[in-house]
């Protein structure tokens, strides 16, 4: 089950934060088809937010075809997001973990890691376009 959290200073509206967190969990395989999302009541009991905000987020996810509401039962995941299969995901993740360990060993901190990762992905994206 996904556990939502809020970043109140982010400037991103609350319902979109919930939508993003579900999409993120789908990409990472933390949520899979058939999994149930928490009920509106469960979310508001942990986050102290208006239930209509949760329902709005779920409606948006439903509109995108990612989840479906089953009357009387709850909201369930319909499909995953992201290009790779779960096996590929796991393999790539292991590779990335190895790379991160090497980078840490070389003295890079979290910000250095993020900067390097972003720079490389951006550069490669540019090459693809060119």
């Amino acid at each position: 089950m996904i556990e939502f959290h809020l970043d109140r200073g982010s400037g991103v509206s609350t319902y979109l934060q919930l939508v993003h967190q579900v999409r993120h969990a789908l990409r990472l395989g933390a949520l899979r088809p058939g999994d149930q999302l928490p009920t509106a009541r469960e979310v508001v009991e942990s986050l102290a937010i208006n239930p209509n905000t949760v329902l709005k987020a779920y409606r948006e996810l439903e509109r995108e075809g990612l989840v479906e509401g089953r009357p009387g039962q709850g909201t369930f995941v319909r499909r995953t997001l992201g290009g790779a299969t779960l096996a590929e995901h796991t393999r790539l993740r292991r590779g990335l973990e190895q790379w991160v360990r090497q980078a840490r060993g070389a003295g890079l901190d979290q910000d250095d890691l993020n900067a390097l990762f972003t720079a490389v992905t951006t550069d490669l994206a540019k090459e693809d376009i060119a």
Binding site: T39, R41, V44, E45, S46, A48, I49, N50, P51, V54
Partner: peptide, 14 residues
């Protein structure tokens, strides 16, 4: 404050 608002929101949802 958080606990009171959580309680109110849960009642609204239920």
């Amino acid at each position: 404050r958080h606990d009171v608002m959580r309680a109110v929101m849960a009642e609204v949802a239920a």
